[in-house]
Design a protein around this nucleic acid. Structure first.
Lengths: 116, 116
DNA sequence: GTCTATACTGTAGAGTCTTAGGTATAGAAG
DNA sequence: CTTCTATACCTAAGACTCTACAGTATAGAC
């Protein structure tokens, strides 16, 4: 819609996916929809990035998948968080908090340090 | 040193470089040093990423460079922020604030939205 | 019966980083 | 005087992650 849509920073998909799955198992399409809605349409994962990311996370053992038939009768690959994935999520959320602290400090810094 | 060093998110170099140059002209090495110091050694730009980034920013017209001989007698390529670069810096800082707001909201969300 | 939303998959290409290497000067240490 | 460290720059190979685009296919609405 608006051009005001935020471009996701590279490398931040993973934690968003893990976070989404922490609510419970979901298939790919639902992950991307939830993310759009939860961010008031400001964050969007393209499908071309979503499915590779899901496979990546599964390879690392952070999520696991299973083909299931939904109530709707549709087949879908349902992903869920593993125990390792839960730990990873916690770790990444912590790292993110630290990141914004440091990064914001730099961006808000006043000129006092000397630049040779 | 400590393994606790944060890995910079891709795509966040540029705004850091612009920010650094907003203090005044500096050469590449000084930019990376300032960044390390200003972040208490938590953020680091590898040289292999720094110099390409500087050239990139110059191509876009956000910074400009000039060879100068420092008081030390050493030659160095000194970069400075252009007017366009100043506007770009302001724009990116605003975008960053918005990004952390949205992203944090998602990461802190409580399970109320439905995940089909 | 066609259209929309759902659901998944794949490829090509661009952009950005990491890793690892290289050149060269100034000044201090020995 | 020679070697080491800090300074200062540059490049290339490769990996990774995203975007853009292009598909396939089903369920339900109209």
């Amino acid at each position: 819609m608006t051009d005001s849509q935020l471009r996701l920073l590279k490398g931040t998909f993973d934690v968003l996916i893990l976070k989404t799955l922490s609510w419970g198992p979901a298939h790919g399409y639902a992950v991307s929809r939830w993310l759009r809605e939860c961010s008031d349409n400001e964050l969007r994962i393209e499908e071309g990035a979503l499915y590779p990311a899901l496979r990546r996370l599964e390879e690392r053992g952070w999520i696991e998948s299973e083909w299931r038939t939904a109530e709707s009768g549709r087949e879908a690959r349902v992903y869920s968080l593993t125990r390792t994935g839960q730990r990873e999520l916690a770790r990444e959320v912590t790292a993110w908090r630290r990141y914004i602290t440091v990064f914001t400090r730099v961006l808000e810094a006043r000129p006092d340090g000397t630049l040779s």
